[in-house]
């Protein structure tokens, strides 16, 4: 099974990364928090799983629909 890609819903900046590759996450658990227009927007895991990769760094700019992390398949 292919890895699950987690995408950003918004354009903004990566404020805090909460999970590292290899860490387990539960469905609806925040993987990172983005910041845009003075709002903090969490990026949630779409299902239970293990983080395969984090594809952005704190302070990075992200675009809407950009992949920011993946979960192991």
């Amino acid at each position: 099974m292919a890895d699950t890609r987690i995408k950003s819903e918004i354009s903004g900046n990566v404020w805090k990364i909460l999970k590292a590759p290899g860490e387990a996450v539960a469905e609806e658990e925040p993987v990172m928090i983005l910041e845009s227009m003075k709002m903090e927007i969490p990026v949630m895991a779409p299902r239970d799983g293990v983080v395969a990769s984090i594809t952005v760094a704190e302070g990075d700019t992200v675009a809407e629909d950009q992949v920011v992390a993946t979960l192991k398949g």
């Binding site: 819903e9 918004i10 845009s36 227009m37």
Partner: peptide, 13 residues
Amino acid sequence: YAEDPVRFLPSPG
């Protein structure tokens, strides 16, 4: 506001 009218998420651009 520059934001989605349903979910109120920011929409810069």
